[in-house]
Design a protein around this nucleic acid. Structure first.
Lengths: 102, 102
DNA sequence: TTTGCATTGACTTAATTAAGTGGATAAAGA
DNA sequence: TCTTTATCCACTTAATTAAGTCAATGCAAA
């Protein structure tokens, strides 16, 4: 699950504030550049983010469609209309049948 | 010309002592890893070195055939049997018709 | 129960590709 | 003769791919 990892959730939160280049995301963490690159790959494969190539840079943005799908999943699983990453944390700590979601 | 650059000539000299991984070559210079990678690419395209992939490493070695061709070129240009990199330096400082060689 | 083994996932290191910069050189026109 | 313009070429930064480590998890056999 793309959002099962706390680092990836933090990336999604960051992108919620606005688009960022891969290097800007890396700078906000203490792990290596390849580690972030790999997380971004997972998020992209899950349809949660998009990339725009801008010269040497790769600009990452949240993908509204992917977030919609994610929100729908949260509604289904929890019965809430407004998902918070805090509650999601609880959910993910006790995974039942989350297969194939986002 | 692959051997026109002093960095590349130093790489060839180093490999004369024995095979080295790309990273070991990089460590012996003060330029970035991509810069060395690019030099190695030129040397490989010129047939002067070979690469062996060994797990995560790329082992670079002199290619005897390429060196033979180079030696033949030096003989032709200078009329000497034993080329020295020092004399080559002189030659390359005043290039006349070195096209297509090595 | 427990032991052993295969799988998964986040991470690192090694190396490269891609894109852009800056300096030197050469050719061409005023 | 200048000057300008174009082209190389070595280099850097940005980002990635590939390969391997390590710890946690799951699970089947003893």
């Amino acid at each position: 699950m793309a959002l099962a990892d706390p680092t990836r959730r933090r990336i999604v939160e960051m992108l919620g504030e606005g688009a960022l280049a891969a290097g800007e995301i890396t700078a906000r963490f203490e792990v290596s550049a390849p580690a972030i690159s790999q997380h971004l790959k997972v998020l992209k494969a899950a349809g949660l983010v998009t990339v725009e190539v801008s010269g040497q840079r790769r600009i990452y943005r949240l993908d509204p469609a992917g977030l919609d799908a994610f929100e729908a999943w949260v509604r289904q699983v929890r019965g809430f209309w407004h998902a918070s990453l805090g509650r999601l944390e609880q959910e993910l700590a006790n995974p039942e049948k989350d297969e194939g979601v986002v």
